[in-house]
């Protein structure tokens, strides 16, 4: 089975614009809100949303951070590879703030749980929401659901959902890849 294109550049652009609008609707001027991207791939999504909010709504200086969850993951010593950390850029306090956690793909929910634990290190937020570009439904290991959602996909365990970003891979695209073909 070959790699399947699930979303193309145009579709992703429309989805990002919608997600930005939904955030705007809920958070108004973001004066008490923080966008936090889960490293590494959620960070790109945060930057995209920030640039849309800046261009379309002239909302500048929205507080944001990039959270590395490596040391909070629950599969340490259970996976073959050593879990390697990414840069953690959290120059913000989340005390009493509305936090929106942002990641590209929601799969088992374990990364999100690790992020929820990791955020505790930076204070007690008044609430935490979850935004993901892709939701792989029916594959959750934990009771975690997104508040803002780009697109749902049904992918089997042998498949991988891969988000390509223009900044990194040169094109905005989402693929479904058969892992056995990798």
């Amino acid at each position: 089975m070959s790699n399947r294109l699930f979303l193309d550049t145009k579709e992703i652009q429309i989805i990002l614009n919608r997600l930005a609008c939904q955030l705007r609707e809920k958070h108004q001027d973001f004066s008490n809100s923080i966008l936090i991207g889960i490293q590494p791939r959620g960070a790109v999504l945060v930057k995209r949303l920030l640039s849309i909010l800046e261009q379309e709504d002239h909302l500048e200086a929205i507080e944001h951070g990039f959270l590395d969850i490596t040391f909070f993951r629950d599969d340490f010593r259970r996976s073959e590879k050593v879990l390697s950390a990414n840069k953690n850029l959290m120059d913000v306090s989340v005390e009493n703030k509305k936090v929106v956690l942002i990641d590209d793909v929601l799969y088992t929910g374990r990364s999100v749980r690790a992020a929820l634990t990791a955020i505790d290190s930076y204070g007690r937020p008044s609430e935490i929401e979850l935004l993901t570009l892709i939701d792989r439904r029916f594959s959750r290991h934990l009771p975690i659901q997104p508040d803002y959602l780009g697109r749902q996909v049904d992918a089997i365990a042998d498949e991988k959902v891969l988000v390509h970003w223009q900044e990194e891979q040169g094109e905005d695209e989402v693929y479904i890849i058969n892992k056995t073909n990798e």
Binding site: R73, F76, N88, S93, Y122, G123
Partner: peptide, 20 residues
């Protein structure tokens, strides 16, 4: 490389991580 990540961790407001 790993030490520099942990150096960032021990300068956080809450310095503990659950890895071990």
């Amino acid at each position: 490389e790993t030490s520099s990540h942990f150096k960032e961790v021990i300068n956080r407001p809450i310095k503990k991580v659950p890895s071990l």
